[in-house]
């Protein structure tokens, strides 16, 4: 536990000096707040911008952040030094994962406060966001474990992030895309957020998110076994 807390403290100190990462955490909640307060169009669904940006936030921020953190630590050899100092890979993952999860949940809290929800709906909103953030973290950790450098990680994270983050938006305009998008966790997050306050059952959405998480965990295990955190040769991409 001590090692996990040390990793979290280290990440917090680092974030305060890393504007690029810090901006990512605050950009989507700030945009949602600005749009919600400044754009009022007649006939626009309730909490439109909150739900739209929340789904994008879940698909982008935890995923790119954890992939960037792990790949940077691998590239700069700091991860190797931590592992030599008796920090286990799982303690490291728990540390950086908890840190990203905590900061993303702060953002989720801002979205939650921006939306016009009842107390019960707010609880459900946060649970849905937590599930999405966890799925994103698993996918990002897999990319980080499989990449040898930040550059290599970015070449994977950008297309994957665009795919998962924009599918929910595209699916609202095209029913064919919606048929495929429904199997992604980000689309299910959007649908679950849409269904807040309605009678529709969330079972299918929860199942799809769970299957996504299992697949991402499997991908992480596969890449971690091939590459680990110690060796210099990336399993996913070459530099």
């Amino acid at each position: 536990m001590r090692h996990i807390i040390t990793i979290i403290k280290k990440q917090i100190r680092d974030t305060l000096r890393n504007k690029a990462v810090f901006i990512q955490f605050v950009m989507f909640p700030a945009l949602a707040a600005f749009m919600t307060k400044s754009i009022q169009i007649e006939g626009m669904p309730a909490n439109f911008f909150v739900k739209l940006f929340a789904a994008m936030y879940v698909g982008m921020v935890p995923f790119t952040n954890i992939a960037a953190i792990i790949s940077e630590e691998k590239e700069k050899n700091t991860l190797r030094v931590l592992l030599m100092a008796d920090v286990t890979p799982w303690q490291y993952l728990a540390g950086v994962g908890s840190y990203v999860f905590f900061f993303c949940m702060l953002g989720a809290g801002v979205f939650c406060l921006l939306g016009e929800y009842t107390l019960g709906e707010r609880g459900a909103f946060l649970l849905i966001m937590a599930a999405g953030i966890l799925a994103s973290l698993l996918l990002g950790a897999a990319v980080g474990a499989g990449s040898g450098s930040q550059m290599a990680a970015t070449s994977v994270t950008v297309p994957v992030m665009l795919l998962f983050s924009f599918l929910p938006m595209f699916s609202t305009f095209n029913s064919d895309i919606a048929k495929v998008a429904k199997y992604t966790y980000t689309e299910q997050i959007r649908l679950l957020l849409d269904s807040l306050g309605t009678e529709s059952g969330p079972l299918e959405g929860i199942l799809i998110i769970a299957v996504n998480m299992i697949l991402f965990a499997g991908l992480f295990c596969l890449l971690y076994r091939r590459q680990g955190f110690r060796q210099g040769r990336p399993a996913l991409t070459k530099n």
Binding site: D14, R17, R80
Partner: peptide, 14 residues
């Protein structure tokens, strides 16, 4: 190690 493996944005003390 031959490579430094230091956190570049953090101070020496940190």
């Amino acid at each position: 190690m031959d490579s430094f493996g230091l956190y570049e944005r953090l101070s020496v003390w940190e």
